[in-house]
Structure formats: C-alpha cells, structure tokens
C-alpha cells in the first residue's frame, strides 16, 4: 500500500498543478533585422488565471522572451479567454517559440514597444482547443477512410472468445487442482 501511495501522490500533484504549451508558427519575413511577432491566442477555461501566467519561451534555449500581452476577453471565472501577444524576434537567429500558460507559470519579463518595426502575425496550429475554434480545427475530427468490410475485422471476435473460454476453463481446473 505504501509503495502504491508513493506513486499516487506525485501523480495527484501533477493533476493539481500544471502548465500547457502552445506552439507558434510564423514565416520569417524577407527583411533583415528585428521585427515583431503578434497574434491572438485562445485559452481553455481556468487554464491561464491571469496575464502573469502566460509567457513566451524560446524552444531551443528554454529562455523566456520579453513579451507584451493584452487581454481581449475573459472567461466567466476571470481567467483569460483570448489574449493578443506581441514579442520581438530577429531574422538572424531563427528561434522557435512556444507559449506557456498555466498555474505554475510566472512571467518575469515584459516589454514595451520602443521602436516601430514590421510586424509578423503567427498562428497556432492544431491546438487552442477552445469553444471558439473547435469547429475550425480540422485536426480534431477523426477521419478514417476504410474501404474494407466489417466482417474482415469482426470475425476475430470468435477466436478471442474461444481462447478466453478455454483459458478460463483451464484456469479453473488448475485452481481446483491446487486447492488443498
């Protein structure tokens, strides 16, 4: 029982706290130098409690990128529904960026738009599974084209039942044999 609890407690801890990540995709522009990346992200209910719980991170270096986040809409419980995120990027170092949000995320760097720079908008592929974009995300619909007939698969149920039946009968025999 103790061993069981040892495994159970960290998993419960995991359920209580957590963070999620969203991957950002954008195309690097042909210009050289700094530019802004901007876009709108949707969050699930009570996933990002407030602005401080959202940050942008370089995926390779695992360093936080200073970002400006503006809330556009809130869920009824006060958590962020959608936010506009702007952060600086450079065409020289082609970093990959992800957005982190969740209870144990703490944003430390913020940034102010000091200069006027070209802005590139990003998109969030596949994720952001909120009510708003549920119907647009094709990825959530399981599409499977199977031209073969059902009988090709379902006949396997016969051997499965047959084998399980024999196993059960033989197991009962063995147990009876071992009973003192």
């Amino acid at each position: 029982m103790k061993t069981f609890l040892i495994f159970l407690i960290p998993i419960l801890y995991c359920l209580a706290y957590g963070a999620d990540q969203i991957q950002i995709e954008f195309e690097y522009p042909s210009i050289t130098g700094d530019f802004y990346v901007a876009g709108t992200v949707f969050f699930p209910p009570s996933a990002a409690p407030d602005l401080k719980k959202i940050l942008v991170m370089d995926k390779d270096t695992r360093k936080e990128i200073p970002s400006k986040i503006v809330v556009q809409d809130n869920w009824p419980d006060g958590s962020v529904l959608s936010a506009e995120i702007v952060f600086p990027a450079n065409s020289q170092k082609k970093g990959k960026y992800i957005i982190f949000y969740g209870g144990d995320v703490e944003r430390k760097k913020s940034f102010v738009e000091a200069a006027v720079l070209p802005t590139v908008s990003f998109i969030v592929p596949g994720a952001g599974n909120t009510v708003e974009n549920m119907d647009v995300s094709v990825g959530q619909i399981n599409v499977r084209v199977d031209r073969s007939t059902n009988i090709r698969y379902w006949w396997y149920i016969l051997p499965v039942f047959f084998l399980i039946l024999i196993t059960v009968l033989r197991t009962l025999r063995t147990i009876r044999m071992q009973k003192l």
Binding site: P125, G126, A127, S137, G139, I141, N142, V143, D146
Partner: peptide, 20 residues
Amino acid sequence: TEQSLFPALKAPAGSISITK
C-alpha cells in the same frame, strides 16, 4: 497495409498527441 491481415494502427490525423 490497410488491406493486409493486420491493419496499421494510426493516430487520427491532426490529433494533438501526434502534432505536438
């Protein structure tokens, strides 16, 4: 393979477990 004895099991296209 789809028509072979064992169908290849695939993640549904676009599911998060694969894309991420």
